[in-house]
Design a protein around this nucleic acid. Structure first.
Lengths: 203, 203
DNA sequence: TTAATTAAGTCAACGAAGCTGACGTATACC
DNA sequence: GGTATACGTCAGCTTCGTTGACTTAATTAA
């Protein structure tokens, strides 16, 4: 098996990726460091997200489902009785895309749809016990990675992580997170609102 | 225009998502908080990554390219003269998938392929000046988000962010990041190795 | 009470970006 | 001289996003 031993590949002399270190005006170095810091952040986001999402793939594949199913399951689990439109606004996909995954989730008994009480046009989505069980299985895999990272990094780092991640997401997502957190602290039945948006909305 | 005013939707009495607060054995509450912390991390990763990647979409769309093109451009830009196989191992996609985006990047003059000197089978990839210019445009959009987040969160938070993100990615990605950082500090021509893997490798 | 708006579903078709399997070619290495 | 490696390519499939058009039921406003 070619075990991808890329070690020491391409160790040939390569023109350094860094600009020539000669004749830097004052401040340029700082600016450069800042740019490198941001580029490193791009790397961090790519790798961390790739491996975070990949963690649950084994289970998904054995069930013939994809990541889209997992995302729906996750957000329905976190927001019982969420209206379809709110879920759409969280995921930022079209209802046709959501319909595809939702159909299979309902057919296979992972998600139930209940008619809204005050607005009977709504179909409020919740996990069935089977859905909760599946979500927990998927969660367990990602939890391994995340809690190991949290444990190794320590509490202060986790708080920093939280702050930076919040800063990266848009205002709508931040206020969603705020409401989710408030709900966590015992507030009764908040809206799952993803907060006002602006983008397209076609379909 | 229906401005997605989801505010206060579904504020009907909903069975709390949280387990009934009565009769908690000692420690259960802590355990619960820890689980909620990890679930919140899932949310953070989803929203932050969604908006981070979305930031460059406007430019990509106007050029008729996708995120796959951006990823290739990014990692080629960060690793001039990278062999195809190393890029594949970083992106973790098949060469057929990479070929599709690479073909258009080369055709449109954003990327050049040079024959390897010590191993002439290799096609070492680099950005052309046009490719660098495009990458900078794309970078600028993401930079806005990232540097605002860094600025608002502060240096200590950024370090925590970095530590947690490193912890989430797998060992191979961590050692890639280490090597990239070392290269940054003036070491001459390191390998772009994504470090040994294990997964499939078919195709 | 009628008309407009909204929530949700559905059919059809398309595009981006993954995937597998099977080969071909040039180069390296033993 | 034979095997393994780096890269490219043809063909076809899957997931999951997209647009556009249209229906039904329920709510809301005129």
């Amino acid at each position: 098996m070619p075990d991808q031993r890329v070690e020491a590949t391409a160790a040939s002399a390569r023109p350094a990726a860094t600009p020539a270190p000669e004749a830097k005006p004052a401040g340029a170095n700082l600016l450069f460091l800042r740019e490198e810091e941001i580029r490193a952040a791009q790397d961090l986001l790519f790798f961390a997200y790739r491996d975070f999402t990949g963690a649950a793939d084994v289970i998904l594949e054995e069930l013939g489902m994809g990541r889209a199913h997992h995302r729906a399951l996750h957000f329905i689990g976190r927001n019982p009785r969420i209206p379809v439109s709110d879920l759409l606004a969280i995921l930022r996909i079209t209802k046709q895309s959501l319909a595809r995954v939702l159909t299979t989730l309902v057919e296979r008994g992972y998600v139930t749809q209940a008619q809204g009480r005050d607005d009977r046009r709504q179909r409020l989505l919740s996990l069935t016990p089977a859905g909760e069980a599946l979500e927990r299985r998927l969660f367990a895999r990602q939890r391994e990675r995340l809690s190991a990272a949290y444990r190794d990094a320590g509490g202060a780092a986790v708080e920093g992580f939280r702050r930076v991640m919040r800063g990266i997401m848009d205002e709508a997502a931040r206020s969603y997170m705020d409401r989710a957190e408030a709900a966590q602290d015992g507030a009764p039945a908040p809206s799952h609102a993803p907060a006002p948006r602006n983008g397209p909305q076609r379909g």
